[in-house]
Amino acid sequence: MKIGLFATCVADTMFPEAATATATILRRLGHQVVVPREQTCCGQMHMNSGYRRSAAPLAERFVATYGAFDAVVSPSSSCVGAIRQLYPELLGIDHPVLERTMELSEFLVHRLGVEDVGATYPHRVTYHPTCHSLRVTRIGDAPLRLLRNVRRLELVELPDAQECCGFGGTFSIKNSETSSAMLADKCDAIESTGAGICTAVDGSCLLQIGGGLSRRGGDTRAVHLAEILASR
């Protein structure tokens, strides 16, 4: 399959290792992965902050860049959610590539039927299901299925897992105190598991959770799911 990789602005800029890992996993499965140099941002920040019209050229750009691929895979369910859910109205058409755009774990489990990518990761890990992966793209337990098949990985359940981490894009700045209160509870929950690693499928949520954990000074780190799945 010829797959277009959409890194997203957040991962491209701050989590390049998550995008690299995404490409590695897909290539190991025998697919041709192309990273179009024209890619930028899906425009979710604009759409979510009241500047929807500014996102229209970015939506058009996405369709022009990725329209010809068999599938588009991204290490962010939030951006994929924005593309699938908000682009049709923004563009005025439901381009077929929108439906072919998927977050990595969703693509592996739901599209390819792969639940074991042959990874080894000797750590105690807890998984935070991000809001948009649960309630917009609805990937269900795809990440957990993949994690359960990682060698030497000890998976521990996160209390109140389905609660938002408080990121919410510009919400984290505009309502930073509420966002921080949500984050504090999330970090408490993560630390209560004794896990060394908290993983998720969204760079933006990992920016928030990782930033909170780092400020608290403990040993727990935030790591993107793709990096775990690419580890050998």
Partner: peptide, 9 residues
């Protein structure tokens, strides 16, 4: 507003 409670990558 971000760095009051969070580090930034």
């Amino acid at each position: 507003a971000w760095t009051r409670t969070r580090d930034l990558r």
